[in-house]
Every structure is written in C-alpha cells, then in structure tokens.
Write a protein that binds this DNA or RNA. Sequence first.
DNA 1: CTCCATGTTTAGAA
DNA 2: CTTCTAAACATGGA
Length: 261
Amino acid sequence: MPELPDVETFRRVLEKRALHRAIAGFDLEAPRLLDGIDEAELRKNLVSHRFEATHRHGKYLFTRLDHGPWLALHFGMTGEPRPFGPDEAPPPYARFVIHFEDGGHLAYIDPRKLGEIGLTPDPQTFVHDKGLGPDALGLDWPTFRALTQGARGMVKPWLMDQHHLAGIGNIYGDEILFQAGIHPRRKMEDLSEDELKRIHQATQDTLGLAIGAHADPTRMPPHFLIPHRHKGGHCPKCHTPLAHTKIQSRTSWYCPRCQPP
DNA sequence: CTCCATGTTTAGAA
DNA sequence: CTTCTAAACATGGA
C-alpha cells in the first residue's frame, strides 16, 4: 500500500498515537530493515526519549525525537505502522515494536521486509542525500512544468522516479494517468503543454482524494481506476474492458479508449 | 507448484 | 550518457 497517500495516512496515525510518549524500549525482529545504523545506535537514540513531531516527504515518514534527530521510515511494498494496546498481542509480521512507558506499543509490520528504518539529523538532509525530488503533493504548476523541461522517455516511469517527484508508485501512477487520459507509454518529449497540465492537475486531485479516502481502496471515489485495475475490470468512465501492459517489469493498467496511444 | 504483488537498486543491453 | 529490461531482495496469497 505505501505510496504517498498511504504514507500520509500513516503520518496522521503517528501524529495521533505516537507523540509525547516516553519510549521504554523496542524489539527488532528483522535487523536487515536498518539502513545505515546498527541496533545499538537506534537504542541509544530511542530509549528514554519521545517523539515530538512528524513529517512526510514522498513515501518517507519522519518522526522527530526530543533530543533532535529524526527516525526515518520507509515501508517498502508491504510495510505499515500499527499501534496496539497494553493488553493486546503484537500484530502478525511485527518486525519492529516500540514499547512506551505507559504500556502501549507501536508496531512496524512488514511481511516482506523490504522497508527501511534509519536516523537522520533532519528530513531536509535526508531528502538531499537520497536525491529525492520535491514532494508530489502540493506542487504548483510552474514548478511541475519546470521539472518536466527536457524530460524524455515514457511518462509512467518518469512519474514513478523518486528523483523527479517523490511519492508516486505503480498504483497511483496508473491512477493519475487514467484521470489525465494519457497512455502510460506516451513519451515525455511528445506531451503537449495541455497534456502536462492535465497530468499535473490529475496528480493533485488524485492524491488529495486518495488521502481523503484514507488511502482505502474501498473508499475511493467512483471514478477511480484503482478498484477496477484487475483481470476482467472495466473502465469506470466508459465501461470499456481495461487493458494492461508491462512497463519496467511492473503491470500498468489503463483504459484503451480513454487513454489512446 | 506457479504466478503475481503497492518499492528500490543494480547489472546489462541497446 | 541515457533509456529500458530483467532480476534480486523476502515473503505471502490466489
């Protein structure tokens, strides 16, 4: 699930459930998740401290500790934060569980262990070091247009490249191009100003509506592609059977009528 | 058993 | 140098 709307939803969960609570300790079942730090360093930075703020950039979630540094979380393909109570058992696939002194817990669940847990002095430094582009949400048209200047290659991979824009993955890349009426294999250098504008608008609208739906596919607006992007699915706008193709070894779903080549 | 999966990185081909 | 493809990572679900 973790693309920008999912991670924004996670951020709101942490904002409500993880701040200002003293950390008693943690269990780390999958040390491979650590990125650039070891368990001892993580322990030194978390234990007896508390989270005081949250921030999101693209698919990364940050929480600031009371002594300055930020915990940086990436959720891979299957990661998700999940708070649970003092008398509850940890959820399945809890790879990293923070225990608060008040008895509550915060689990980081990740069946496939493709996520990342790290520390950074601040999100700006982190974003710079990773070479991430600006956050896809809230990007204005002049900035978006400037980013696309000189861009080449297929539009879908361009949108999904975190160095251009941060936050769009395979699912929302399809959704944005569907809403914009652009075929995923169209080339950046062939897109008109009007088409780029449609992609920009669709990006803002799609991400905003998805966040409004708490990134829950069952709560997406009726004109969304997401609930239909599977075998036998039809276009929610014109009812044409959906088509799919492999782009960069990922499946892209689109409507062959609303998104002509 | 086989195929597919929301991400990122990397090797190799073109 | 850039673009594109395939695969690897680890694991579960259909």
